[in-house]
Amino acid sequence: MQLIVNGILMGAIISIGAVGLTLVSRILHFFYFGYAAMLVYGAYLTMTLFNDVGLPLLPSVLISLPLLSLLAILIDKITFKNLRERGTGPFGMMVVGIGLELFLRSSVRLLWGSDVMRYDLPIRRAIVFPFNVRITPNQLVIISAAFALMILLHVFLDQTKIGKAMRATADNIDLARVRGIDTERVITWTWVIASISAGFAGFFLALDTRLVPIMGWKLLLPLFAAVILGGVGNPYGALAGGMIIGISQEVSAGFITPTYKPAVAFVIMTITLLIKPSGLFGRGGQG
């Protein structure tokens, strides 16, 4: 039971992060490793606003998001926009993304240091539920906030004009272009959504554990696994994929050494790629 609850917690974090990553992968047409750094920046910016500036926690998160979006859009304008115009393929973009990941991760070390840090919150005891399941109040916050976010994302993608345009672009880029959707505008919005997604995932992860510059990189493999399992470009698939990966990772800890958790994500991802590269829920297949 405890393992399943842990799994849902981890799944919620991965799901929230995977939504942004799946949209970036599909709409920008490559797998962006720098996404890991976006998670880390989200967590650290929030920390600075909360621990150092002294804002309350929720405003800290909410202010960090536009900052993160700005950073992401700026990076896009400097690098990827150029490459798009030159027709650089997905692989070149991916290499640039890796370069950015290394660069941004080191910048976190230079700006905030390499030491482990945490949010200045009182440490509260876990609440004990039936079946001796223990959940800390923070974890309850994470799970409920994650589900609230999922609903908000759904409303955004389903109801707003730009959300629909994003989904149409994710479905079929060429068709979207033919139908007169301004793809550069969609890309800008994709970075905004990705920042929200990454920012919250980073914040949740840091709230549940702690802050280290490598935390984003460590979550990247499960994130990609969730994206691929859900079908690249399918945000709902990413949510479901994230849950499946999170739960499998945690439950596996009941059978194998817990350090091998990332291997579980790796195996699920590889099997998906071999059997059904379009993912469980279709639509994917192209990065």
């Binding site: 690098t79 150029n82 490459l83 650089t88 070149g92 290499v95 640039v96 890796i98 370069g99 950015l100 990941e101 290394l102 660069f103 941004l104 991760r105 080191s106 910048s107 070390r109 230079l110 390499s114």
Partner: peptide, 17 residues
């Protein structure tokens, strides 16, 4: 170490661009 990592990252970006 952080500087080194940053420089390698930057080199990757620059080579492609």
């Amino acid at each position: 170490g952080a500087i080194r990592l940053a420089v390698i990252g930057l080199l990757l970006v620059l080579v492609v661009m």
